[in-house]
Write a protein that binds this DNA or RNA. Structure first.
Lengths: 336, 336
DNA sequence: TTGTAAGCGTTATCAA
DNA sequence: TTGATAACGCTTACAA
């Protein structure tokens, strides 16, 4: 490996000068600078980042915690994170979050990250304090079920989104509306569910708690759960169903197809997130658009600002624009 | 930050002993060990990984180079990579590969990675040599268009896969078969295309070079390209089309729907990779299954073995099992 | 404008 | 079985 010492020797200067050149300290004489630059080029020198961050306490890496890399919602966000991080010369360490291994985060990221980006996870109080003490900021894209003051959030206004969606369904004659959520109490889908409930009552609609179906956020489990429900002899409690994400909504669509239920003639189905695939199902899915790429941009931007101490107290929560996308999977019911 | 010095002081031992305990050197007296362990616990100590890798020259991190994080094929592989890496206590640095910024890889990964996992990219000779010199092994999941002896590969047998698929189409009466690939000469889809061509002639089928449609691997561009083709007055050169990946095949499906072409009655469509979504389109997509998760497992396993010097010369290329999945999008043509 | 040297938190060698 | 101490490659006072 070529080290800074090699460069110094080759260029006939001291190691400090090499550092000055690399870090663009303007003190260096232009002639010397060129000499050093030439040596760097000739030797193919690259600074060792581990050594650098040991000294500077800056790693130029951010940790990103996934729930499910297989969900295009999360990869869509990462696309934004990654592009913006690249702009700033930052790298991302991706990790799937597993509740039972939360303790390990402390080990994995020690001396390896300038900040942690969550995708809606509710970390334990002790973990949050640990990173706080280390000066590693936490930021969540889409708010955790259990909000914590020292975790800043980027999200859309779920109440507004649910209100828009439910208003659309109401206008199509639906009064009884179901919900498919995610079982875990700590999952960020809980926020979507609770705002759904608020919007339901604000609009004077009915919500039968029996009309709550629980899956785990994945397509397959949603499909299985819905199929099971459709096969039971009892009639559905609802004429329309809102799913906490598109993946589950697509699973519901498939279950309806399997069971011979027509969408939207027999049942209206809506999702959340507007992943690419939701416009390529048949029927195409009505959904709430979540600005994924933008949320990733904002997250990195905020991290960079936090670093520069521009920690404005008002910015602990950022609300992004949402959009209702009406497609074919919702509409008026047609009685055979 | 709590350092090893703090622990040593707290436990009343030297710093060396703390290291011994952490790294499980068996020399330490059990009583001392317990004392140190208790101090570590009490102080909430975690070893600084930057310092450690500076000393040991091992980073316990692997770089992963994506083409498109939005492609479920790539995230499916990552799911495998991530799970296996976790088992071994390794972290992954994800990066989107951009040809024009290849030079930067040398900087980004300096002192930060024990190995680089490619997803079919063809790196420049000089880049490959750079990492070779540093002792950073390169491994590609799905073979690059330009194979290089020092990059080991994990892939399926694309000739076999294409042969299976084309045989199925031939049995359904198709003789003229088109292909949708990816434009760039360096893209790993080129391998799929060339093996397609070989299988075509082995089976005595026709392949009209005009029947080659070029997109960029994404759904949207495939849809646009196919729609454009369908709108031109000339009749199609083929009665069936194979797409280099499922995402593009789904785009083709959407284009057909837009243009009023029935699948498979008017045109058979097949993909590659068998992403989750391909079983939820209508018609469901015929495709070649690629064992994504497994390929990720193998990649990490190989990396770990390379490290231990178990660099068997025979293992530079690993072939995984593939499967033809026949669904609804292919079949016999029905003349109106 | 450049050089010397201390120190970042580890591991590992060598003595004790 | 333990303790000093020299690296690892870098940044950054401070001195020259």
């Amino acid at each position: 490996m070529v080290t800074r010492d090699d460069v110094a020797k080759h260029a006939g200067v001291s190691v400090a000068v090499v550092s000055y050149v690399i870090n663009n300290k303007s003190v260096v004489k232009e002639e010397t600078r060129q000499k050093v630059l030439r040596s760097i080029e000739e030797l193919g020198y690259n600074p060792n980042l581990a050594a650098r961050s040991l000294k500077t306490k800056e790693t130029h890496q951010y940790g990103v915690l996934f729930n499910n890399l297989g969900n295009p919602f999360e990869t869509g966000i990462s696309l934004g994170l990654e592009a913006k991080a690249r702009e700033y010369g930052r790298s991302l360490i991706f990790q799937t979050y597993l509740g039972e291994e939360e303790e390990q985060l402390k080990t994995i990221y020690m001396g390896r990250t300038d900040g942690l980006i969550l995708l809606g996870q509710s970390l334990q109080e002790s973990t949050i304090r640990h990173f706080e003490k280390l000066g590693v900021p936490l930021l969540s894209i889409t708010a955790p079920a259990a909000a914590h003051p020292s975790v800043r959030c980027i999200d859309i206004d779920w109440y507004g989104a649910m209100h828009d969606l439910l208003k659309h369904l109401k206008e199509n004659g639906h009064t009884r509306i179901g919900f498919m959520g995610t079982e875990s109490k700590e999952h960020h889908h809980q926020v979507r569910h609770s705002e759904f409930c608020k919007a339901i009552s604000a609009l004077g609609l009915q919500y039968d708690p029996d009309g709550l179906l629980q899956a785990d956020g994945r397509l397959e489990s949603a499909q299985a759960r819905m199929l099971e429900r459709l096969k039971s002899p009892e009639p559905l409690e609802f004429s329309a169903i809102v799913c906490a994400n598109d993946l589950m909504a697509i699973g519901v669509l498939s279950a309806c197809k399997d069971a011979g239920i027509r969408v939207p003639e027999d049942l209206s189905v809506a999702g959340c997130e507007n992943i690419l695939m939701s416009s390529h199902t048949s029927p195409a899915l009505t959904t709430v658009h979540y600005p994924r790429r933008l949320s990733g941009f904002m997250a990195i931007d905020q991290m960079m600002k936090l670093k520069e101490g521009q920690d404005q107290p008002g910015t602990s929560s950022t609300i992004l624009e949402h959009n209702l996308i009406i497609r074919e999977s919702t509409g008026a019911r047609s009685p055979e």
